[in-house]
Design a protein around this nucleic acid. Structure first.
Length: 571
DNA sequence: GCCGTTTTCGGCCCGACTGTTTTCAGTCG
């Protein structure tokens, strides 16, 4: 069972208890457990089956450990089923509506019988909500807007999309009177694979008009809030943006605070508390006399709680604070460490550019080598090649390699693993290649067991060097296929097969959590763009972001190696 | 519900903005 599915049980408990008005700390505790489980870099169900104890993870106690055991064993949880019997099903869905929290949901249900989004809309349109304590006409209006937003299903955006929105907005705001410095924070700065909204920090001089300028931005569809130091808008397309104005002396504290994650911040604050300190977005203060001890830079803030600087990509409370405390933070991979790209396509299959164009662009990026890896015949829509065509193509690669100076062009292929686990091309032609990537492009919806067998069989072919986009997911579009990754990793470790982080922004596959599990199991990683045009070679940075979120260092990533060492790392 | 170089009980992160109030509760991040 996936960690996400186990986590879901705890989230649902938290939602229901929240609406029932249960002790907020108990509710938080359940939410905390859900998050911890979802973030684990190993499979919890397997760990439990092997006799492991969930209590080893801080935040999971006796009660939750028992619940995990029941879920793993039976696939159900009595406690949750009892809770669900007490309130209508639609009630927890109401919590997803912006502006509605547990207190209002409870009142709406008890006083008006509202138990679904549809009924909420009806009640709001009929002007019934204003009869309730603490609600008025404005509340009705706002909730109707929120319902519309919710129905449109606009929630999260790919990181690449968020970065382009942020870039344009920063460009615009930098021209507003009095704006001295702008810094996007939030999940964007942590390079999370999707972002829900944008947080932009602004340092201003006196008489700054940043808030007025912001709400007048061309792309603004709706102003949600406008204050002196904080405003929120929704852009056309649905993305919410918050801008905060702050003083230079609290910039570091604010940057840290608004970069999050929330879980990281809570942990840092707890740590501060033990030291008699209080952390807010304005700085770090001594509790006894309110004396400010840090705030100008993030280094200062971390220093005040006895820690070295922690890179934004690590701030998920997934062990980074403990590692920092023990001086064991990883030295994260940098984009400038990358010396080559091992997956790209040319006109020979579904790419737009020639071998030579791809190689020259790679050279421009400072790379020492690339692998040309077009599709095999099973991927018909992409113009995949059969053995004869590939053999000819490999000759063309050799020629290009002679022609383009200063970069090594490796002969490669991305060969399909067919439904029965065999490879789409015969061994004789695979043996001619320097780099063979194996991957899956068909029959995604197999049962887990079958898919796992298929993959293990596929990568067992001695010609396979790298398993490409290992889970097949497309962010926000298509879920990963069912596969027991742990078993795939164990087999790959045994066989010496490298796992890929596909850097294409729609894929980022492996993701951060899985890549970290691969590292922990002793596997090595190749970060490849999967470029289908020369300009897409620049997408490497997204793969590096994911690698950094997975705690990867230079030694973990084979395409940071010099050519000779790389060739040794391949089979 | 979780946790413990003050603790097995009594705490648990902190502040801005809104809408409804007339001093504040609810929500959000």
């Amino acid at each position: 069972m996936e960690n996400a599915r186990i986590a879901e049980f705890f989230s649902r408990i938290a939602d229901i208890l929240d609406i029932q008005g249960e002790n907020p700390f108990r509710v938080r505790s359940y939410r905390n457990v859900a998050r911890i489980i979802a973030d684990l870099s190993s499979n919890l169900a397997e760990l439990v089956k092997e006799g492991g104890d969930p209590k080893q993870f801080a935040g999971i106690g006796e009660s939750s450990a028992e619940k995990v055991a029941e879920i793993v064993e039976t696939g159900r949880l009595k406690f949750l089923e009892e809770l669900e019997g007490k309130i209508p099903k639609g009630l927890t869905e109401l919590l997803r509506i912006e502006g509605l929290g547990p207190k209002k949901v409870k009142v709406l249900y008890e006083d008006l019988g509202v138990d679904s989004v549809a009924r909420l809309e009806k009640a709001a349109r009929a002007g019934k909500l204003r009869e309730l304590a603490g609600m008025g006409a404005k509340t009705e209006e706002n909730l109707l807007k929120s319902i519309e937003h919710y129905r449109r299903g606009v929630g999260r955006f790919k990181l690449s999309v968020g970065m382009s929105y942020a870039g344009e907005l920063v460009e615009y705001l930098s021209k507003v009177k009095g704006v001295k410095q702008l810094e996007p924070a939030g999940s964007l700065r942590r390079r999370q694979e999707t972002v829900g909204d944008l947080d932009i920090l602004a340092i201003c001089s006196a008489g700054c008009e940043v808030m007025d300028g912001f709400v007048k931005y061309d792309g603004v569809e709706e102003v949600i809030a406008k204050g002196e130091t904080k405003s929120s808008v929704r852009l056309q397309g649905g993305m919410q943006v918050d801008v905060r104005m702050l003083e230079e002396e609290s910039f570091g504290a604010a940057l840290h605070y608004f970069t999050g994650s929330k879980a990281h911040n809570v942990a840092i604050r707890g740590r501060a508390q033990q030291r008699g300190l209080k952390v807010s977005e304005y700085g770090v203060f001594r509790v006894k006399d309110d004396e400010r001890v840090a705030g100008k830079s993030e280094e200062e803030v971390f220093g005040a709680v006895g820690l070295p600087f922690i890179e934004p990509e690590l701030r998920e409370n997934r062990g980074e604070i403990e590692a920092a405390d023990e001086g064991k933070l990883p030295e994260l991979l940098k984009l400038s460490d990358i010396r080559g790209d091992l997956q790209m396509h040319t006109k020979a299959s579904d790419g737009k550019d020639s071998i030579e164009t791809m190689a020259r662009k790679a050279k421009e990026l400072g790379y020492k080598y690339v692998a040309i890896t077009d599709h095999s015949k099973a991927v018909r829509v992409a113009g995949g090649m059969d053995e004869k065509e590939l053999a000819k193509h490999l000759k063309a690669i050799e020629k290009a390699n002679e022609k383009v100076e200063g970069i090594e062009i490796l002969k490669g292929v991305e060969v399909d693993i067919l439904a029965d686990g065999s490879l789409d091309l015969a061994d004789w032609v695979l043996e001619e290649c320097d780099v063979v990537l194996a991957s899956i492009h068909s029959r995604f919806n197999m049962p887990e067991e079958e898919m796992t067998e298929r993959i293990v069989k596929g990568i067992s072919n001695l010609n396979v060097d790298i398993f490409a986009h290992p889970t097949g997911r497309l962010i926000l579009e298509r879920p990963a296929y069912e596969v027991n990754l742990k078993r795939v990793f164990e087999a790959a470790k045994e066989l010496g097969v490298v796992m890929e982080i596909n850097a294409y922004p729609d894929r980022l596959d492996l993701n951060d959590v899985n890549a970290r599990m691969a590292k922990d199991m002793g596997l090595r990683i190749s970060i490849d763009t999967d470029a289908h045009a020369a300009t897409q070679l620049e997408l490497m940075r997204f793969g590096v972001y994911t690698a950094r979120r997975a705690w990867l260092e230079k030694a973990d990533v084979i395409n940071s190696y010099p050519l000779k060492k790389l060739l040794k790392a391949l089979r």
